[in-house]
Design a protein around this nucleic acid. Structure first.
Length: 262
DNA sequence: ACTAATGTTAGCCG
DNA sequence: TCGGCTAACATTAG
């Protein structure tokens, strides 16, 4: 599930659920999601702290407290749940943070591909996010163009490379390229100036809608609404969509709408 | 039984 | 150094 729009939804949830509230209890039900921090140190660092305004960079969520920062990454199946301590605990609830005011935050994740990190200060936050490219929501057109021009790989690979640009995942990349009428296999540095402008515009439009929806919505008018169909059809031109594999990820595109750049 | 799934990373190769 | 590929991580659903 989690790409930038999902993580932004978690950020908004965290802000409304936890901002200003103090951590009363920390329960780690599965230490497999902790990275570089023990359950004891996590508890000692967080209990008694109050959450301040959370931030997001790419697919990372930063739960700030004014002291240490809890960093969350949701992998492919993670989510953040805000509820009551009385809610039934589910099988994949890995970490529970009980907050003042009868609230409880939960890091829920089936596959445990990523998890939780703890940074003692901003220096350590910066170190953990050191390899991240500019955030896809915040990047300006010039910087975006510079990212594309400086990579010789395929444009889809560049869009999903978190060190080049942070936030886009497999679904968003396919969706944005389809809207911009660019084939995922074209070389990023072969894009023309109009290509780059169109790609930037469509990235912004797609992100704006997806952030409003809180996910990459599988709407009928979106490519994403059809990628799991048995015989998918392009919702724009009716041509049969193509499927392939790029960098190990399933890739869907329209051979008619997204012509070979050459 | 086999495959793919919205993520990331180490290791290998050219 | 860069880009591309594969396996691995852990788990479930079709």
């Amino acid at each position: 599930m989690p790409e930038l729009p999902d993580v932004e939804k978690f950020r908004e949830m965290l802000e409304s659920c936890a901002k200003g509230r103090a951590v009363q209890h920390v329960v780690v039900r599965d230490t497999g999601v902790l990275h570089g921090v023990s359950a004891r140190r996590l508890r000692d660092a967080l209990v008694g702290r109050r959450f301040t305004r959370p931030e997001r960079h790419g697919k990372w969520l930063l739960a700030r407290t004014g002291g240490p920062t809890l960093l969350l990454h949701f992998g492919m199946t993670g989510s953040l749940v805000c509820g009551s301590p009385d809610d039934a605990v589910e099988a994949h609830d890995r970490v529970l943070l009980t907050l003042s005011g009868e609230r409880q935050l939960r890091y829920r994740d089936q596959r445990k591909l990523r998890g939780l990190w703890l940074a003692d200060d901003d220096t350590e936050v910066a170190r953990l996010l050191d390899d991240q490219g500019p955030d896809a929501m915040a990047v300006d057109r010039a910087e975006f163009a510079a990212v594309l021009s400086s990579h010789r790989g395929r444009v889809k690979t560049v869009l999903t490379d978190q060190t080049a640009l942070a936030g886009l995942g497999n679904l968003l990349a396919d969706e944005i390229l389809w809207r911009a009428r660019l084939r995922p296999t074209v070389r990023a540095n072969d894009l023309t100036e109009p290509d780059r402008r169109r790609l930037y515009t469509q990235m912004r439009r797609t992100l704006r809608s997806a952030v409003t929806a809180g996910c990459v919505p599988p709407r009928d008018s979106w490519l994403t609404g059809h990628r799991d169909d048995p015989d998918p059809i392009c919702p724009r031109c009716g041509a049969p969509l193509h499927r392939s594999r790029m960098a190990g990820r399933g890739t869907v595109w329209c051979p008619r709408c997204q012509p070979d750049g050459a």
